[in-house]
Amino acid sequence: MDNFKYFKPQNFKELLNVKYDLSSAGFPLAGGSNLLIYIKEKSIRSGTLIDITSLKELRGIKKTGDTIEIGAAETISGILESKVLENELPFFSVSMRDFANPLIRNKATIGGNMADASPVADTAPPLLVLDAKVVAASKSGIREIPANEFFSGPGKNNLSKDEIIQKINIPVPERGSGIFLKLGQRKGTSISVTSVAVWIVNDSNKITGIRISLGGVAPVPIRAVNAEKAFSGKIIDENNITALAETLKEDIKPISDLRGSAEYRTAVSINLLKRAILTCLKTEE
């Protein structure tokens, strides 16, 4: 029999205390677009729903020094509407335009999407190429986990049982441009088959810095370090881009599932990477 409790901490300290006390039986509840599904599907049968939506420590999108801080309980719509992001890091808000649909974007949060740790989480690849940090908080303190090291498997993350995500810190890149391309099976509300984010710094046509991240091609969203290495320092043209993009094969381990075969995922990941890089270089010009 399902048995759930509800608790709404009045302040941040209380949240950390209750998460410590409840440990894995305490489920942070923000938008609920994942958690309520798990409850309805009965993959979670009992526990305490810890309502975190109104705690100010988990809200807000602001720039502090060279870092943009996004509260874990900020919705995707909030990100799309943020003036701070529009001015300082439009790449990230633009990346969220194809996240689910407007109804879900009004509910789903950045912290929830990351914590859920889906291999196709749409916040992950853009955050990975931005070298974002997940700020985890617990009674014993705060630590920063690089986004790239945050995931440990499908649906699994590296938070301790007493930790919650407080915010996401994104260092504002000094230079460069980025793009996020998502491939779904339909145009509205699609779950990514595969997705590619790149951030490129380009000096007189030569790539002097590049970060590449993909979703849907491994148990977790990944950084494509081999491909990054291959592209670094290169002058890109129509002739060499394919061979360089093919190095992605060393980075990815896609599986075949309902949404696509491993072969297809591999092929389109390479094509999306090429498209992403060419588009970025064009906007850099």
Binding site: G32, S33, L36, L49, D51, L103, K107
Partner: peptide, 10 residues
């Protein structure tokens, strides 16, 4: 937003 994924208590 969808009320089915909204907790009533929220």
């Amino acid at each position: 937003t969808v009320s089915c994924l909204t907790s009533a208590l929220q």
